Simulated assay, not measured.
Amino acid sequence: MLERIERARRRPARVREDRVTLAHGAGGKATHTLVEAVFLEEFRNPLLEPLEDGAVFDGLALTTDAFVVTPLFFPGGDIGDLAVNGTVNDLAMCGAHPRYLSAAFVVEEGFPVSDLRRVTASMAAAARAAGVWIVTGDTKVVQRGKADGCYITTAGVGTMDHPVRLSAAAARPGDAVIVSGPIGEHGVTVMIARGELDIQADLASDTAPLNGLTGRLLDACDGRVRCLRDATRGGVATVVNEIAGASGVAVVLDEDAIPVRPAVRGACELLGLDPLYVACEGRMVAVVDGEAADAALAALRSDPLGSGAAVIGRIADDPPGLVLLRTSFGGTRIVDLLVGDPLPRIC
């Protein structure tokens, strides 16, 4: 069975659908296939091909992102601070010090100016908290009903102040897999905020800038951090699958070690979701040298954003390219990439 899985993964990516579906934007298998078969096929170059959170060149890191969350305002945040934090975090995952952002708005005709002011005020506050400037941008207005109110596209530039080269392909057997805090809070919060589910929960999005946290980690581990990824679309499961595939290693997770708040776990059980696939916006996955795991945890836990950090697994050499979960019942199962589109627009 494992050999068949490996043969299937080695086949060139090919989009079988005639039209783009919502699953192509969910962060799972369909997204990866679309990116590799369409975008990477046409744009292939040495900076793009690793498919990291940003490109690193000439002492700089560059990233870009688009935000289409529904609803625009939710407990703990809104599309504005989500846009700033998401871009800052992508730069931080490259090991960069975020410096400057751009912001482009696509606004729907009839969108309340008061809501636009609320979004921009949130972006300004998030930028101040992250220590970045929004230095350029663009605005477009489209016809009523064409933009779900407001879309935001951002780009970010950061400086590589730490002498590191982080990559999903750098994991080695014996490394520790760490998550910086409880997972799934953003995705579940947004789902409940849509008002379509008869669920009450005391939850707020975990959206936050992670550049301060990554700085502490990189300083404490002195070159022993292999990879950083923020667990957004597709959640932690997608991140660890990307690492396993890029590095040709196995990622072995411990279900009991994965931090999930009771409210998130309960909502996921009601909805038939696995928290491993639910998006975060203020949590990251770090792969560090196994001998540096204690130092990494101490550094993360010294920051409020990392107070719930935990070692959730280890890197092994077999079976290469797969993620295994040791369950609470003592068994083991494969954790594959997300299939389909189980969540609403969440980032």
Rank of each mutant, 00 (worst) to 15 (best):
R345C: 08
R326N: 12
I315R: 04
V56G: 03
H24K: 07
G215Q: 10
A126K: 01
L60A: 08
V285R: 01
I243C: 06
A13Q: 02
P209I: 05
T120Y: 06
P259C: 05
D115H: 10
M191R: 04
V190Y: 00
L2E: 12
E185T: 04
D289R: 05
E42P: 00
A30N: 09
E42R: 15
T214L: 10
D256F: 04
G331I: 14
G137H: 10
D318K: 11
G330Q: 12
D138W: 12
R265I: 03
L22M: 15
A309N: 05
E255F: 11
P275M: 03
S167I: 10
S180N: 09
E269V: 13
G331P: 09
V38S: 04
F111K: 04
T232M: 08
L276N: 01
G27M: 03
A129G: 08
G110M: 11
F74G: 00
D58Y: 10
L213D: 01
A8M: 14
V264A: 05
D230W: 09
E109W: 07
L197P: 00
D81H: 07
I199Y: 05
V278R: 00
A96F: 07
F43N: 14
V35F: 06
V15K: 06
A237L: 05
V157N: 06
C268K: 00
T31M: 12
L62S: 08
R144F: 15
S102I: 07
A125E: 15
A130I: 06
T154L: 09
P319N: 13
D138V: 06
A250E: 08
G181Q: 02
S167L: 10
E49L: 14
A237P: 02
I334A: 09
T21K: 08
C268R: 00
G174T: 08
V236Y: 03
C268L: 04
P98M: 07
E52F: 08
R226L: 13
K29T: 15
G306N: 05
K140W: 10
G131Q: 13
A263T: 11
G340R: 07
D317Q: 14
V157T: 13
V38W: 05
Y277F: 13
G145S: 10
R144C: 13
G340E: 09
P262V: 14
T154S: 12
V236P: 00
L166E: 04
G187E: 01
